[in-house]
């Protein structure tokens, strides 16, 4: 059973202390950044993690990467518990899990050449010490990321590349370690519309060619609609709905998902729909609302929502949502 999954996350929690405990401040305030997240990912699967800023999606990805230490829960990667891995184990795991960041202008060191950037992971892990082998791997990673011929790029600096090319360099430097899992944190949101598709298509290609699993973090369901197998919608540190792309897009169950879907603009003036616009802003994750954490903004909340916090419930084998109104 466990072998089916490349990644299993169980009851994961990540709390941050709010403010430093000092003479004058209480030390018991916590930001509930990730609060009880359950997630399974199959080999070669692409899951989209969707939510607004402050929903905990970025913290979740940093915790999965081991860049933040989980407060509670377990993370199993390829059947192995990596929740509290030692620095040495962590380094080894990092060869298998890699990350692509949001801002390609910021995620490359301006003083390094593309060759240095892409070969850095090999240096760090002491891999491919033979220069020929190293060159070979760097070249392959660049060309797989669509930077062909690699020779044209090796000796350039990030500032000489366009945004799309830089994002390809970031992807290449992740690929050079031949990871099994790629965490992509909003990889296209800083790019111009006309080149977003090319990065998405590149990721789709890689997944097909190398059977890499991808966690795609985004605030924009629209961009991943074509690419992800499943989608998990997060609100205030928790997954409120998860299912296959088709199920969630066509038959959303949670009122938050419904609202989120309704406000995605459709580029067709003939299809102007009624949007469900939630009022107010996401509450601050220090003082969570009692009961269902969505109820203060929920357009269909009932009295019971103020009292009990609904767990994820199955709608179908592959589709669950956390809403009291599902019990009918």
């Amino acid at each position: 059973m466990a072998q089916d999954y490349i990644l299993e996350v169980r009851y994961l929690k990540k709390y941050f202390q709010a403010g430093r405990p000092g003479w004058f401040s209480r030390g018991d305030l916590f930001v509930h950044a990730v609060d009880d997240v359950d997630l399974q990912l199959k080999r070669g699967e692409v899951i989209a993690l969707v939510g607004e800023s402050g929903c905990g999606k970025s913290t979740l990805s940093l915790t999965l990467m081991g860049l933040e230490e989980a407060t509670e829960g377990t993370i199993l990667f390829e059947g192995r518990d990596i929740t509290h891995a030692s620095p040495k184990e962590r380094k080894e795991i990092r060869q298998r899990i890699q990350m692509v960041f949001q801002d390609p202008y910021e995620s490359l060191n301006p003083t390094q050449t593309i060759e240095e950037i892409v070969s850095e992971p090999l240096h760090v892990h002491g891999l491919a010490t033979n220069p020929e082998e190293r060159n070979d791997r760097v070249r392959r990673a660049l060309e797989d990321s669509g930077l062909k011929p690699a020779e044209d790029y090796l000796h350039r600096f990030p500032h000489q590349l366009s945004g799309g090319q830089r994002q390809r360099v970031v992807i290449a430097s992740a690929l050079v370690l031949e990871p099994h899992l790629l965490l992509a944190d909003e990889p296209v949101s800083m790019l111009d519309v006309s080149i977003r598709a090319e990065i998405i298509n590149l990721l789709a290609d890689l997944r097909q060619k190398r059977n890499i699993s991808v966690i795609f973090i985004t605030h924009d369901l629209g961009t991943v609609g074509y690419f992800a197998d499943r989608v998990a919608v997060m609100y205030l540190g928790r997954i409120v709905e998860i299912g296959t792309m088709g199920e969630v897009l066509k038959d959303p169950q949670h009122p938050y998902t419904k609202a989120l879907l309704s406000v995605i603009p459709v580029p067709n003036p003939r299809l102007r729909r009624k949007r469900i616009i939630l009022q107010g802003e996401t509450p601050n994750p220090i003082d969570l609302p009692k009961g269902c954490r969505f109820h203060p903004r929920c357009p269909v909340a009932i009295e019971a929502c103020k009292l009990s916090d609904p767990p994820l419930q199955k709608v179908s084998d592959t589709h669950s949502a956390a809403c009291l109104l599902l019990v009918r």
């Binding site: 006309s194 998405i200 074509y226 580029p267 067709n268 003036p269 003939r270």
Partner: peptide
Amino acid sequence: YNAPLHPYTQELLKAFPDLSKPERKLTSIP
């Protein structure tokens, strides 16, 4: 949106995700 004549407008629309037509593949402008 429905009868664009400039190739740029046409390509831009093809690159823009449209959840009302999820089966369509996105293309980017090279």
